[in-house]
Design a protein around this nucleic acid. Structure first.
Lengths: 188, 188
DNA sequence: TGAAAACTGTACCATTCAGTACAATTTTGT
DNA sequence: ACAAAATTGTACTGAATGGTACAGTTTTCA
C-alpha cells in the first residue's frame, strides 16, 4: 500500500490561484498543468472527475478556510468589536488588498449553468449572517445589523473589482477603513 | 453601393448580453451565433476581427452609453443633488437591480492578458471622477468626496455580485437606498 | 433593369479542448 | 528485497474551438 497522504491537498492552492486568475472556462488543462507543474496523468490521478472535481475541491477548501479562520470566530458569543476588526484584517490579507480575486464572487457573476449557485449562495449568506450576528450582539437592531452586514460584504467585493480595475491597492484599504470607522462610530 | 446603415449596431446589445452572461472565454462562436441568430458568415462579415473585434465594439458601445446617459449628466455644473439620485435610478435600471452583470467589472476580475485593462480602468476612473466632482459641488471636501465616490461605485459593483449570488434583487435596492440616504444626510 | 456591393449559409481547416489508455517509474508496507 | 499500489509522462481520441473560403443570394443605387 502506498501512502494515503496524497499530494492532492498541496495542489489546491495553486489550483485555486489558476481559477481565480483565469476563471473556470479560461482555466484549460494546459494552463492548469503549467501552473501546478503536474502532467495530465497526475491531475487525473488526483481528480478523476477532471476540471469539475478540481473546482469542487477548491471551493470546498475555500469554504473550510473561511469558516475556520473568519466566519466561526465572528459567530461566537461576546460583545467585543475586536473580532470584526480582525475580520477586516484577515480579509485584506487573504485578498491581497484587492489584488486577488474572490473566486466565489467571480462565480457569482459567471455561472451560466448555475453549477455553483449553491456553494456561492451559502458562502455569502454565511458571511453576511455572522457579521450581522456580531453587530446585533454589539447592540444594533436586527434591521440595521442586517443592512450594515450586507453593505460591508458588498463593499469588500466591490473593492476587489475596483482594485483590479484601477491597480490601486490603496483604494481597497481606504474602502475597508471606511467600513471600520462606520462601525466604530455608530456602535459607540 | 449597398446600404451603409448596417445591422452591425443592432447586434451589439445581444452580443453584450452574451459576454455578460458567459464571459469572454465562455462565449464561444457557437453560443454567440445562437444568441444573435447570425451565422458565422454574417458575424465575420460584421466583425472581421472575430471575437476580439466583437468585444471591442461592445465595450465601446457600453462606454458611449454610460458617457451619454450617466457620466456626462453628472459632470455638468450645478449644485443640485438630483443628478446623483438620477444616477442611482439609471444604474439600477441598467443592471436590472443587480441581475445583470457589469461587463467592465467582470473584465476587471478576469483578464489574464490585460487586454482590456485600459478601457476598464478608464471606465471606472471616469465613473468615480464624475461622482466625486458632483459631491464637491455639493460642498464636500475633495478628500471626502473622493472617498465617498469610490465607496458608491464599489457598493454598486458589490451589490451586483451579491445579488447574483443570493438571487435577491431586494438586496441591490436596499444597498443603493443606503448610499442615497448617506449622501442626503451628510450633504444636508 | 442591371451591375456592384453587401450579406449569408455551408463546407472546410488547423488547433486546442477535455478526457482516456497505458506502460514505465516511484513509493510503500512488509 | 519484493510485490502491490500509487504516481507520472506520453501518446492518443473525438469533439469543439476560432477562423477562412467561397458560392449563392439579397440589397442597393444609378
Amino acid at each position: 500500500m502506498a501512502r494515503l497522504v496524497t499530494e492532492r491537498a498541496d495542489t489546491l492552492p495553486k489550483l485555486a490561484e489558476v481559477f481565480r486568475e483565469h476563471g473556470y472556462d479560461g482555466a484549460s488543462l494546459a494552463v492548469i498543468s503549467a501552473a501546478t507543474g503536474l502532467g495530465k496523468g497526475s491531475l487525473y490521478n488526483f481528480f478523476p472527475g477532471g476540471k469539475a472535481e478540481m473546482i469542487d475541491a477548491v471551493l470546498a477548501e475555500i469554504r473550510k478556510v473561511f469558516d475556520e479562520t473568519i466566519f466561526d470566530p465572528l459567530a461566537g458569543e461576546g460583545g467585543s468589536e475586536e473580532p470584526l476588526g480582525a475580520m477586516f484584517s484577515k480579509v485584506g490579507r487573504y485578498f491581497l488588498d484587492g489584488d486577488r480575486v474572490c473566486l466565489m464572487g467571480a462565480l457569482a457573476l459567471h455561472d451560466p449553468h448555475k453549477t455553483f449557485a449553491g456553494v456561492v449562495r451559502d458562502y455569502f449568506h454565511r458571511w453576511i449572517e455572522v457579521v450581522a450576528t456580531r453587530l446585533r450582539e454589539l447592540g444594533w437592531s436586527p434591521d440595521k445589523a442586517q443592512a450594515e452586514a450586507e453593505e460591508i460584504v458588498a463593499n469588500i467585493q466591490g473593492a476587489i473589482v475596483l482594485t483590479r480595475a484601477t491597480g490601486d491597492r490603496g483604494l481597497f484599504q481606504r474602502l475597508v477603513e471606511r467600513q471600520r470607522e462606520r462601525i466604530g462610530i455608530v456602535a459607540a
